[in-house]
């Protein structure tokens, strides 16, 4: 299994597809990397030689793209900043509600998670065991 930029081990898919398993590379960038490295787009990731991998990695680092750990850290830092300054967006992030003004009366399930019924729940009579 080929390794690229540390942790990623994309398996027997076409290279452009397997590159997309790297956090920070999507369809556009993956295609571009393959093209720039001058590799056959129909090649499978398993067939990549050491040399090919080097070439791919160079293309990615030369572009100064922030990928993987650095990217994750950047995003986390952004969220942290918003939350630290206590602005509206930070508050919404903290509460796990939509940040960009979407309605929350209904929908917003991606942010809010599975439905949980709220309201007056009757308490069962506590068994008196004294």
């Amino acid at each position: 299994m080929p390794r690229l930029l540390g942790v990623d081990i994309p398996p027997k898919k076409k290279i452009a597809i397997s590159l997309r398993y790297i956090y920070g590379l999507g369809p556009t960038r993956a295609d571009l990397v393959v093209k720039e490295a001058g590799l056959d787009p129909n090649m499978r990731a398993a067939d990549l030689t050491e040399e090919h991998l080097n070439k791919l990695q160079h293309v990615i680092t030369d572009r100064k793209w922030v990928v993987e750990g650095d990217l994750r850290r950047d995003i986390a830092a952004n969220l942290k900043r918003l939350q630290a300054i206590n602005c509206y967006r930070g508050i919404r992030h903290r509460k796990g509600l939509p940040v960009r003004g979407q309605r929350t009366s209904t929908n917003a399930r991606t942010r809010k998670g599975p439905r949980k019924t709220v309201g007056v729940t009757k308490v069962k009579a506590e068994p008196t065991t004294v």
């Binding site: 900043r81 630290a84 300054i85 206590n86 602005c87 509206y88 967006r89 508050i91 709220v118 309201g119 007056v120 729940t121």
Partner: peptide, 21 residues
Amino acid sequence: ENMVGHKLGEFSPTRIFKAHG
């Protein structure tokens, strides 16, 4: 310093949510 670029209104919430249940 890191509030620069935001608007003043972002720091002064206009709605209050009192919890359900």
